[in-house]
Amino acid sequence: MSRALITGGVGFLGSHLCDRLIEEGHEVVCLDNLSTGRIDNVAHLGGHDAFRFIKQDVTEYLYIDGPLDYVLHFASPASPVDYQRLPIQTLKVGSLGTHKALGLAKAKGARFLLASTSEVYGDPLIHPQREEYWGNVNPIGPRGMYDEAKRFAEAMTMAYHRYHGLDTRIARIFNTYGPRMRPNDGRVVSNFINQALRDEPLTVYGDGLQTRSFCYVSDLVEGLYRLLMSDEVNPVNVGNPNEFTVIELAHMVLKSIGGQSAGSTALTTGIEICPLPLDDPRVRQPDIGLARAKLGWEPKVQIAEGLVLTIEYFRKQLEGSS
C-alpha cells in the first residue's frame, strides 16, 4: 500500500482527495491546522485503517514517521474572505509551507503535487488562459497575498525539480464548487446558493458581466488524480472551460432553487448590485488542451447537475443548523 500526505487535508478539495486516494488503495496522512478547514469534512474517515489525521501548521517543523510515496500540498486559504482575513498566514503557507512540504518530499523520495491556482494569471490579458501565459498580477493589490504566494510556490516547486531532481507536479486549479464548501467562504457559488436558500438578495459585484468557469468537485478530483499519476512536470490547467457570466450564474441558481422549492415556482429573492472589488478578474476560462492531451481528462458534470447536488448539500446544512 502506498502512502500519501495531504496538507490542508480537511479543506474542501483536500478532504475529497483523502476520499479518492483511500478509494484507490492508498494510505492517507491528513495534515491541517484547521484555520479554514472543517474537521467534519473527514469525520466519516475517523477510525479508518488507511487514514490518520495530524493537527499541525505546515509552516512549522514538519516530521512524518514512516515512508511517503506522495506529498500533495493543498494547505492555504483559498477564498477571498479567507486570504484577506489571513494575509500573512497566506503568504507564509505559500512560501514557508511549500518549502517545508518540498523538503519532506525530498527526504522521503516522494512525488510532490502543488495545488496552484488560476489566480497566477491575475486579471488576464489573453483569453482563454493557457499554461505558457505568465499572467497580469498586481503584487501589492488586495489579492496580491494569494496570487504571489502561489506564484512563489510554483517557482520553488520547479527549483526543487531542477536543482534536486524532485519528481513534481503543478495543478493550476480553476473555480471549483460542490459539497463541503463553507457557506460563508466568499466564493460565488456558495454565496449565491446560501443567499438564495435564505431568501436574501444575491450579491453581484460590478455589472455581473465578468466571466467565470466552474468545475464540479468530482471532475476536478479526477483531473488531480490523473495528474498525480502522470509524468507531466509542467503546470497543467485543471478546470471547466464552459464559460458564462456571473449574472448568468445568479439566474441559474435562482432557477434551480426555485424549481426545488415545494409549492413554489419562483423565489422572492432578487439580485443586489455592489461595486466591483479592485483587481477582480474580468475573465476566467481555462484552456485545457494540455490536460486533454496529457491526462486524457475533461469535465463531465454539467453546471445544472452540479448546482442541484451542491444546493442539496447546503439545504441539508441549513436544516441541520436550524
Rank of each mutant, 00 (worst) to 15 (best):
F152N: 04
Q84S: 14
T268D: 11
V28Q: 03
T59V: 14
P275R: 12
R52P: 00
V217R: 06
C215L: 03
F112T: 05
S322T: 11
W134T: 11
A293P: 00
S15T: 12
Y313C: 02
I22G: 00
R169H: 07
K92H: 05
F51I: 02
I6F: 06
G37P: 02
E319N: 13
Q260R: 15
L62S: 07
L72C: 06
A43E: 08
E222V: 01
L45R: 13
S76T: 15
Y313P: 09
L278K: 15
I173E: 05
D287R: 00
L307T: 06
G206C: 06
C30R: 06
F314N: 08
M229R: 15
A107Y: 07
R52H: 13
Q129R: 03
E27N: 02
D65L: 00
E119W: 08
S79R: 00
W134C: 09
A50D: 10
V188P: 05
E131H: 08
G109K: 00
Y83T: 00
S264L: 10
T310Q: 04
L309S: 12
M181T: 02
Q129V: 15
L34F: 14
C18D: 09
D32G: 07
D49Q: 13
P281V: 09
Q285H: 01
Y61G: 00
S264V: 12
A171V: 05
M1I: 11
N234Y: 10
L224D: 06
Y160Q: 00
G37N: 11
S118W: 05
S79I: 09
H73L: 01
L113Q: 12
G223I: 01
R151W: 00
S35G: 04
I271P: 04
V137N: 11
V188A: 03
V29K: 01
L68H: 06
D167V: 09
H127E: 09
R198S: 14
D57F: 00
A43Y: 04
C30T: 14
H16W: 13
L5P: 04
G270P: 02
K55Q: 14
V81M: 14
M181G: 15
D40G: 08
P128N: 09
R143S: 08
G144S: 09
K255R: 14
